[in-house]
């Protein structure tokens, strides 16, 4: 009988009710706009360590996020070079100012915090639960078809791997026909994009037919969302952390 009984699941931050997690994420994103250096560092470091600890390979994570470093570098350079104030170093017509450096560090930490919090959230939450939480939040808004939006979110998650598989197939087929040697850039774009979108539209058509054939409707049985005392306690602790980060 042991295998028929529900296994005891230990509560961890990953099992925090997804609606509270989402609310905490949005609050943190908004609060970070008012935080200063120490508050931002105090929040960023533990979550960055958590994000790193959850990855098997730090190198792979850094490779995946290399574009984030480019964005941070752009924001840092722009803030440091174009903010007026007392100059520290002159670089030809522009100068790095003390105020610019402060602004640059704060802006980069704010962005990094939002990236890290988003990464931790997505790493700790199954897509189905996020979909259910979005539906729960949208339901009271008049004129917004919450169930349809949730279904569309599910379909996006289903289509993305299909698109990548089709894109790889199309690209290989183009290379086999020397399509990558075509000189006209519009021709190269069209010969890649046209078969790709055509195939995917046809596969979407087949999916729509299959859904109709199975009487698919937007009224699905969604994952059960339940917030218990421990969830509210964790939420309260999260809010307290944000309040401290705002105060320092």
């Amino acid at each position: 009988m042991a295998e028929l009984s529900t296994p005891h699941r230990r509560w961890t931050p990953a099992r925090l009710d997804v609606r509270l997690k989402l609310a905490l994420l949005c609050t943190a994103s908004l609060a970070s706009l008012q935080m200063q250096l120490y508050g931002l560092l105090g929040l960023l470091l533990p979550f960055a360590l958590l994000a790193i600890a959850r990855r098997a390979s730090l190198g792979a994570r850094i490779r995946e996020l290399r574009w984030v470093f480019w964005i941070l570098a752009l924001v840092f350079a722009a803030r440091a070079l174009f903010t007026e104030g007392a100059p520290l170093v002159s670089l030809g017509p522009v100068a790095v100012t003390r105020q610019g450096l402060q602004e640059a560090v704060n802006a980069c930490l704010r962005l990094a915090l939002m990236f890290v919090l988003g990464g931790v959230f997505i790493g700790l939450t199954p897509t189905g639960e996020i979909k259910a939480a979005v539906q729960w939040y949208l339901r009271p808004i008049p004129g917004v078809p919450a169930a349809r939006v949730a279904t569309m979110l599910g379909l996006i998650a289903r289509f993305i791997p299909v698109i990548f598989a089709e894109a790889a197939r199309t690209s290989e087929a183009q290379r086999a026909r020397l399509g990558d040697r075509r000189r006209s850039p519009v021709g190269r774009l069209a010969t890649f994009g046209l078969p790709l979108v055509r195939r995917i539209v046809l596969s979407a058509d087949r999916l729509a037919l299959a859904m109709e054939a199975r009487c698919y409707s937007e009224l699905r049985t969604e994952p059960e969302l339940a917030a218990r005392g421990r969830d509210f306690l964790a939420f309260g602790l999260g809010l307290a952390m944000l309040a401290v980060a705002l105060a320092v």
Binding site: E64, W67, M114, G118, G119, F121, I122, T127, I130, I160
Partner: peptide
Amino acid sequence: LAGIVGLPVFAGGTGGIGRIAGPT
């Protein structure tokens, strides 16, 4: 909406309100 709530649909395989607040 998918990106804002954290699904990894923005460039670089990330999501979250950070991308909206960022330069792009």
